[in-house]
């Protein structure tokens, strides 16, 4: 039988969305191939989470142990390896998250499994797994297959699949897989929350966001003026923060803020998924970019293809005119 094993991810006592996204996809794959969906949950005191997962999986495997409270790949990996070895699922799905990327490659090497990462689609054809992943910043899709291996390991991009209502009624199985103490070579110290700045961009109805296309710090004045005209705040992509041109609390994306303004104007931003995952829920998205193939245009409602240094000044004029 085809078993699809999904590693449940949680943080701060909450199952994360990617878990349900993967379980939904696994359910569809299992339905088409006559397989079963199994969720693997590691943690401490996770009974409630386990029972919630039963609506999404045929079986929920639980390793409940005090040493599994905080995610530490050094402690988690051997436990997961043990379970995968004993069950030999045809597919193992792990989120392509800060948690998953720290774990999956080491799991793959330890078990000698093939690994395809950051997948946006997974196909099961007979017993054969193939995946689609994006390369070159989302400009090209690559389809990969797996050389014969009983088990294929994939990491799945967050929000690649929708969260659907769970319609299963699985059982919970407590496993007594041994769990080691946290090793001296890798110790968790603490979580540190991102610092809170003076502007909370998540509260603004209008965000004018700027990316690497702005080229120089001095040019930021251009977008600040536009933001002023529209009564909005300036946000940005990661490279602008990396360069020290704007503070971290202005960064939109997976490692920054998730925003849902009424209007999001992306200027000189290519639209890689780490950025788009933070803004695609905006009501109206406008993109200004000189590259007609920039991925941002696939998410935007309106686009202008061209040089931002010509368009933004012209736009400011036209807005002033429209207001008059």
């Amino acid at each position: 039988m085809n078993e699809i094993l999904v590693l449940a991810e949680h943080r701060g006592g909450e199952l994360r969305d990617v878990t349900f996204e993967m379980l939904g996809k696994a359910g569809a794959l299992a339905g088409a191939s006559g397989g079963a969906v199994t969720a693997l949950l590691l943690g401490a005191g996770v009974r409630d989470m386990a029972s919630r997962l039963t609506s999404y999986a045929d079986e929920v495997l639980v390793v409940d142990h005090g040493n599994l409270t905080d995610f530490n790949s050094a402690v988690y990996q051997p436990v997961i390896a043990e379970v995968v070895k004993s069950r030999e699922p045809s597919l193992v799905m792990v989120g392509h998250t800060a948690f998953g990327v720290d774990l999956a490659p080491s799991l793959a090497v330890a078990l000698g499994l093939p690994l395809a990462s950051d997948c946006i689609d997974v196909v099961l054809d007979g017993g054969a797994v193939s995946v689609t992943r994006q390369i070159y910043g989302g400009k090209v899709d690559a389809r990969l297959s797996f050389r014969d291996s009983a088990t294929a390991l994939v990491t799945v991009r967050a929000a690649a699949f929708p969260v659907e209502d769970g319609a299963r009624s699985g059982s919970v199985t407590e496993l007594d897989t041994p769990v080691s103490d946290e090793p001296a070579f890798r110790r968790f110290v603490q979580y540190v929350e991102a610092a809170i700045g003076d502007v909370d961009i998540t509260k603004s109805d209008v965000i004018i966001a700027v990316g690497r296309g702005i080229k120089e710090e001095e040019n930021l004045a251009l977008v600040e003026e536009l933001a002023g005209l529209l009564g909005g705040v300036v946000g940005c992509s990661r490279p602008v923060v990396d360069a020290g041109w704007l503070p971290k609390d202005r960064q939109v994306g997976s490692s920054g803020k998730t925003v849902k303004p009424k209007l999001y104007v992306a200027i000189g931003i290519s639209g890689q998924f780490q950025h788009m995952s933070g803004m695609k829920a905006a009501e109206t998205i406008v993109a200004i970019n000189k590259d007609p193939k920039a991925p941002i245009f696939s998410e935007a409602d309106y686009g202008i293809v061209g040089d931002l240094f010509k368009i933004v000044p012209a736009l400011k004029e036209k807005i002033a005119e429209a207001r008059a």
Binding site: N72, A98, Y191, V192, Q251, K257
Partner: peptide, 10 residues
Amino acid sequence: LEGGLIEKLT
């Protein structure tokens, strides 16, 4: 980590 949360480790 996601959202800018920092996990400190030794």
